[in-house]
Design a protein around this nucleic acid. Structure first.
Lengths: 235, 235
DNA sequence: GGGGTGCGAGAGCAGTGCTCGTGTTGTGGA
DNA sequence: TCCACAACACGAGCACTGCTCTCGCACCCC
C-alpha cells in the first residue's frame, strides 16, 4: 500500500533484475569468464558506469549469479525429491541424484560457476553458504528418511575405528542437521555426496568423452551402486 | 653434432620454455583467468607481439600449460605408485589416491586448469588426451594388479544386469587397456575414479569448508572405503 | 655472398573494468 | 507548494587486455 516507498525502489528492483537476467544469459552463452560488464550494460540499454550503481563491481554481479544458481539448483532438487512419496526410499534417492545431473546439464555454465574452479581472487561471501547448503540438506533428508525407515543397516565395520578428529567433524555435522545418524553413516553420506558431483563434473567438463559418453546408463548404474553403498534397500 | 640445425632452433626452444615458465608461474599465482599475454611478454623481456611467434593465441599458451599439467600430475602419480612394491596392493592404492590429492594441493591453479570448469570457447585439442590418460592408466594398473593377485572378488551382483550400451562401453575400455578385467570391475573402477576427483575438487574448491576441513582424515577414511568398494583386500 | 625467411619492435584497433565530474530527476521535509 | 538533497544516468578518460599489421634487422641455406 505504501506506494511512496516503492516509487524509485520499484525501478531499482526491476533494473537490478534486468541486469542480473542479462548477465545470466550472457554467462549461459559464453561462460563466466567472458561476462562483460559493458556488454551487460549495453543489453539493458545503459552506459556501463550506470550499472555500477547496482553492482559496485563485476565480482558482486558474479556473486549474485552464484547465489541464484545455488538457489535454482536447490529448488530443482527439492522439487524433484518431493515429487516422490517418502516411503519409496530408493526412488527418492534416484530422483535426488538425477535432478542434480539434469539441472547441471540444463545449466552447464551456471554449474561451472558454482562447482568449477573458483574465480581467482574471488572469495565467496557469507550469503552463498545458505543457498549452497540446500542440496546437502536434501541429501541428508533422503538418508535420514531411509535411516528412520530402518532400511539402512549401519555399517558397523568402519564405525569404531574412525580417527578422533574425523569422528568429531562427523558428529558435529550430525548434531546440527541429523542427530539420529551415526558418524559412520554420515561419513558414507559425504562420500556419496562428493561422488555424485564428481560424476556430474567429469561428464560436464568433458573428462568422459570417448569412453562412457553418453553417460546416462553409467550414471544410473553408479547411482544404484551408491544406494547399495549407503545401504538403501530396494523397494 | 649437427650444430647448424640448432642455432636458431635452440634459441626458439629456450624462449618457448621461458614463456611457458613465466605463464605457469602467473597461472599459479593469479589463476588461469588472469593469465595475461602482455604480462608474460613483459616478464620474458619481449614485446607482446613477439610472443605471438611462439604461441599464435592465448588459448594455445593455455593448451601448452594444460598438457604440462597433465604430464606433471601423471608423472607424480606414477612415481608415487611405483615407490610401493607391487605386492602391497592396498598400500599402492593409498599411494595412488594420496598422490593425486598431494599434487592437487601443491598446484591448485594447475589442477583447476585441467579439472575445473572448461575455459569458455576453448576445446581441448587432441594433444591433451595422451597426457590426460596417464592417471586413469595408473588407476587401471593398480586395479589390474589387485585383480591378477586374486584379491578382488568380482562383484557378480551387478555383473549381469548391466544395460547393453553400458556393457559395451565398459567392455570397450577393458578391451583396450585391461582385457582381463570384467565389465563389473571396470564399472566400479570408473565410479571410484570420479569419486577420487570429486573429493579432491570439493576440498580444493572450498565446498568442504566449515565441516570436514581439514580433510586429511576424511580423505584417508574415504580412500579405505573405496578400496573396500573395489574389493581390494587388506595387506 | 646474396635472397629468403624467421624474428623483435612498435603502432594501432577494439574491447575491458573502473573512476570521476556534470547535469538531470525523483522525493521527503519545511 | 516549493526546495534542497540524494539517487541517478551520462560521457570522458585511465590503464589494461588480446590481437593485427608493417617495418627493419639478423640469421641461414643455397
Amino acid at each position: 500500500m505504501n506506494a511512496s516507498v516503492t516509487a524509485r525502489e520499484l525501478a531499482r528492483a526491476s533494473l537490478t533484475a534486468a541486469i542480473k537476467d542479462a548477465a545470466r544469459s550472457q554467462v549461459a552463452e559464453e561462460g563466466a569468464a567472458r561476462l562483460s560488464f559493458r556488454a551487460v550494460a549495453r543489453e539493458v540499454g545503459m552506459v556501463s558506469s550506470a550499472v555500477y550503481r547496482y553492482f559496485p563491481t563485476r565480482d558482486d554481479l558474479l556473486t549474485a549469479l552464484i547465489v541464484d544458481a545455488y538457489d535454482a539448483l536447490g529448488s530443482a532438487v527439492e522439487r524433484a525429491v518431493d515429487a516422490v512419496p517418502p516411503e519409496r526410499i530408493r526412488a527418492r534417492w534416484r530422483a535426488f541424484c538425477g535432478s542434480v545431473r539434469n539441472w547441471a546439464q540444463g545449466h552447464p555454465q551456471e554449474y561451472g560457476l558454482i562447482f568449477g574452479s573458483p574465480i581467482p581472487g574471488y572469495r565467496a561471501p557469507a550469503d552463498t553458504i545458505g543457498p549452497a547448503a540446500r542440496v546437502p540438506l536434501a541429501l541428508i533428508d533422503a538418508v535420514r528418511l531411509a535411516w528412520a525407515a530402518g532400511t539402512v543397516d549401519a555399517p558397523a565395520s568402519d564405525a569404531n575405528r574412525l580417527p578422533g578428529l574425523l569422528q568429531g567433524q562427523l558428529s558435529a555435522v550430525a548434531a546440527e542437521f541429523a542427530p539420529d545418524l551415526p558418524a559412520s553413516v554420515v561419513l558414507r553420506m559425504v562420500v556419496v555426496w562428493t561422488q555424485l558431483f564428481g560424476m556430474v563434473s567429469f561428464e560436464l567438463f568433458g573428462q568422459l568423452v570417448g569412453t562412457l559418453e553418453p553417460a546416462d546408463e553409467f550414471f544410473a548404474a553408479a547411482v544404484d551402486l551408491m544406494a547399495d553403498f549407503l545401504g538403501i534397500e530396494e523397494q
